[in-house]
Amino acid sequence: MAAISPKMAEEVSQTAVPTPKSITLVISKFNPNHESSYKFVEFKVPVQKWTTVLDAILYVKQHLDTSIAVRYSCRQASCGSCGMKINGKPSLACYTKISELNSDIVTVEPMSNFPIIRDLAVDFTSLFSNHKKLKPYIIREDSEIVGDAKEFLQTPKDVEEYLQFSYCIKCGLCNSACPTMATDSSFLGPQALTQAYRYVADNRDKGKKERLKMVDESHGIWRCHFAGSCSKVCPKGVDPAMGIQLLRGYLLGFRK
């Protein structure tokens, strides 16, 4: 085995992984079945430049407290499972690097406006039921798989009308940031309203009238006041605020 000269050793040590610094990860812990309120628990976590908040939580789970409840899956902002409040703002834990938070104290809490199952895991029942309520599929009588009908061809321009809205991963960050969701438990929410627009904007869909009727109610589209917070936190560029305003444009007669 070749010996390493002192100079080489110095070069190796310069390119080696830097010693990790530590941050304090503060995790909100709460089990509604056994406790009456949440408590914040602090953990010291070593972090590198690339450590994400999810990595830090999983470090705690692996080494310090196995009982932390957190939902995650893909670790690449595709599944929408790890939404939580990070330093007060709804974000995806797998998509937020500790280094970009510019703070040695990182606090993670469950997303607001969702019932807490335990610790950081929240209940998505109402998000999914509102999503389903607005019929998130193409509605039309005929089908390309029966009769003489051909494929429903679309131009790239037709696709662009709805493409960004179809990027929604149902992470719920928009519903957590929405000021109306903060007080109105019956509000459909930015996620569902945007999905209604996603199908209305699709020229294969014939369900526009039906969907407009569904959102045109007191806890529907009229409760959106265009605060834009949903679009601020959306990690996929869906821009719910835009979708909702474009949808409302039909009801107000600005669009045909």
């Binding site: 662009e160 009308e161 709805y162 493409l163 960004q164 809205f165 990027y167 904007a201 265009f226 996929k236 560029g237 869906v238 821009d239 605020a241 835009m242 979708g243 305003q245 474009l246 409302r248 444009g249 107000l252 600005f254 669009r255």
Partner: peptide, 12 residues
Amino acid sequence: HGGIGVGKPGMP
């Protein structure tokens, strides 16, 4: 609210 000035949908 009428969809004016809120930008256009596009490729994200």
